[in-house]
Design a binder for these strands. Structure first.
Lengths: 124, 124
DNA sequence: ATTTTTCTACGATTATTTTCGTAGAAAAAT
DNA sequence: ATTTTTCTACGAAAATAATCGTAGAAAAAT
């Protein structure tokens, strides 16, 4: 079973999910806007992630190209599960209420949720 | 500013939030049902949490009584914010949709959410 | 053709978190 | 009155995460 990505690894995965296969340089540039670390830090991190199986890479060219090996949705689902357990004692509904109440949602967003709820009501 | 509690610290905070001021022995017993660590592990953790200001304690009796120094709601809100950023790139709505879709909600729960949504619609 | 820049590899360092073990005092049990 | 159990304190070890620095090869620039 694949290990859970750490926070730093997650930052890198976000870049890969949003931009597709990328070089270390590119990942570093994207992160650089928020984080200020040396070039070898993301490099090392990507190498570790490769060992863990979180990313795959193509080493044909001198500058290697890394790609996420785990899906965004599945990863979010996993992490969400742990988070609900750790922080909300397992109550997903408490989390939803918090997230909703805490966030100024637009009409579109509210409509989206209502649609989902209706779908859930009809299924049961 | 108080530091964010770590995962182990959160486990302890859950016990304190649910049971109120508690001795190390009690916390240890509660955790013991899930975790198997020596008695001094939660003890040390509580001492560290005390240094950090996450808990307060009463040392009148030989067995010290610890109490959460941060509120459950506020803590959940904080952690939820970071989590949304790290895992859902800041989109609280993505998280809500995932959590909802991923969870078989009861009629009551769905009604609760609908009520909240209506309240939000009326406020805007 | 040299110099400079850009890569990877990878060990080492630093920081943080979690767990354990021991010492010694206080309380409880015998 | 002794022994056993139950506490705290606290240093230290183990585990994990994040960062850095250096070496050397390849590519690019001069």
């Amino acid at each position: 079973m694949l290990p859970k990505p750490t926070d730093s690894e997650l930052e890198i995965l976000q870049v890969l999910w949003e931009n597709g296969p990328s070089s270390v340089r590119f990942v570093n540039d994207q992160l650089g806007e928020r984080r200020d670390v040396g070039y070898t830090t993301p490099l090392k991190l990507l190498q570790i992630m490769h060992e863990k199986g979180l990313v795959v890479r193509n080493t044909d060219a001198r500058s290697h190209i890394y790609e996420a090996a785990i899906e965004r949705d599945a990863t979010q689902r996993n992490l969400l599960g742990s988070f609900v357990n750790n922080v909300f004692s397992g109550s997903a509904m408490d989390l939803v209420m918090q997230a909703l109440g805490n966030h100024k949602a637009s009409k579109d967003e509210l409509d989206q949720i209502k649609a989902l709820i209706e779908k859930m009501e009809n299924e049961s």
